[in-house]
């Protein structure tokens, strides 16, 4: 990393604006994910509509970042740390957009839910949602502080996300096993659980991009995975 400023002030501003856009996008995505988790647990159909509508704001920011990056590439031909900032920001913004899409998908599953969630399914789902939200918050903080150590911790923590996903899915399967009437709710919840787990995967992608931004090298080795989770 460099603590010196560019000689050309407008270049400095362009990178600062890019950083600001990404932070704004991160904070919006964080709210959308939090709101979708709250709404699914409460089966809050009104909030679901808002979440679905709000996704457009994240997409707009991604388009704005794409444009800002194209401008930097064309005008500045960035090198070294600037090149890594530019490319990593592009990748991170696309992962944030996907997390936003997944939050929207969770919200979409709320409307057809036939009734409130049974108590026995709420615990694991909430724990999984809380963990993924914490991972997102931490990766955004790590981006702000350019913390390599946090990036590694977040990357490793995906194993816990996988384990909690596994537990939540097993509980839904048990619930389904109790009665055929549970089929509709269980199917929706399986999708929801999988979506949250995939949001976790995008967070680890962000941790990887952040590590590359800081170190100029890729995180070595395969990402740790929880037991019995089928990735797709």
């Amino acid at each position: 990393m460099s603590d010196e400023a560019h000689i050309v002030k407008s270049y400095e501003e362009e990178l600062q604006n890019l950083n600001d856009s990404l932070i704004k996008m991160g904070s919006l995505t964080e709210s959308q994910l939090a709101d979708s988790m709250e709404a699914i647990i409460k089966v809050d159909k009104e909030s679901a509509d808002k979440i679905i509508a709000n996704d457009a704001k994240i997409n707009e920011l991604r388009a704005k970042i794409d444009n800002q990056i194209m401008t930097v590439l064309v005008k500045r031909a960035p090198m070294a740390i600037d090149l890594r900032i530019t490319i990593s920001t592009l990748k991170i913004s696309h992962d944030l957009e996907r997390i936003g899409d997944l939050a929207k998908s969770v919200a979409k599953k709320i409307k057809p839910l036939p009734h409130d969630l049974p108590k026995e399914l709420i615990g694991s789902l909430r724990r999984l949602g809380d963990l993924v939200q914490k991972q997102l918050r931490n990766v955004l903080d790590a981006y702000l502080n350019k913390s390599k150590e946090s990036a590694i911790t977040i990357w490793k923590n995906d194993e816990q996300v996988d384990d909690l996903t596994n537990t939540a899915m097993n509980e839904v399967a048990d619930f389904l096993g109790k009665s055929k009437k549970n089929l509709e709710l269980a199917t929706h919840l399986l999708f929801v659980t999988k979506n949250i787990e995939r949001a976790g995967d995008h967070i680890t992608n962000i941790a990887e991009s952040l590590y590359y931004l800081i170190e100029g090298e890729y995180l070595e080795g395969a990402r740790p995975k929880g037991k019995d989770i089928e990735k797709n």
Partner: peptide, 18 residues
Amino acid sequence: FKNPNNKMTQDYITGRFG
């Protein structure tokens, strides 16, 4: 140009040289 070892190299190629 992607990841120089020396800070001075980086500051020069990125246009930060004071």
